[in-house]
């Protein structure tokens, strides 16, 4: 198997760390992975994106031109990458910030109200984890419990934020299943 993902949004939306959670989960699951961020001036507040490749053998190209899955956290990101998504691929749209619908009919579009669900989880900053939950459900790559463990490890030194993040993961997972 080989799964190529592009995650894109504003700087500050947790786009890079969302990608890293997928990478951590992939390693914990015994898979090979590359996580490649865009870098440069856009790191300071502009658009931000990263490419993640998960593979059961060594990843050849870390460059993702035709993703299996696009996670678009804001409108410019959706339009920048949506036409690159593979036929039959998945587009996860953060509908809190993107009112538009995906026009392509050859991809599966899933709309997640990440901001609203993050508030429900008790922490507005968990919107990226909501989307992570949705991705875990839609990709079927990893067990949700494994990703929950990654979240606990990552926030081990900030235990107060763990419950909201786990809740966010659950809410995203459920929302994608509807």
């Amino acid at each position: 198997m080989e799964e190529k993902i592009i995650i894109a949004g504003f700087g500050g939306q947790g786009v890079l760390s969302l990608g890293q959670f997928i990478a951590y989960a992939a390693i914990a699951d015994g898979k090979e992975v590359t996580w490649l961020p865009s870098y440069g001036p856009e790191m300071r507040g502009g658009t931000s994106n990263c490419s993640v490749v998960v593979c059961d053998k060594e990843v050849a190209s870390p460059i993702v031109a035709r993703p299996d899955c696009l996670i678009a956290m804001n409108k410019p990101s959706l339009y920048k990458f949506v036409n690159n998504v593979k036929e039959g691929g998945t587009v996860i749209v953060n509908s809190s910030l993107i009112p538009d619908k995906v026009e392509r009919t050859d991809v599966k579009a899933v709309y997640i109200d990440a901001q609203e669900l993050a508030l429900q989880a008790g922490n507005a900053r968990t919107a990226n984890i909501v989307v992570l939950g949705a991705y875990v459900k839609l990709s079927g790559l990893f067990q949700k419990e494994l990703v929950a463990e990654m979240i606990k490890n990552k926030f081990a030194n900030k235990p107060k934020v763990i419950p909201a993040n786990l809740k966010a993961l659950d809410l995203g997972f459920e929302a994608a299943g509807k």
Partner: peptide, 10 residues
């Protein structure tokens, strides 16, 4: 190159 520097891998 920039990629080797910025990429994360296991």
């Amino acid at each position: 190159d920039g990629m080797i520097g910025q990429i994360m891998e296991a």
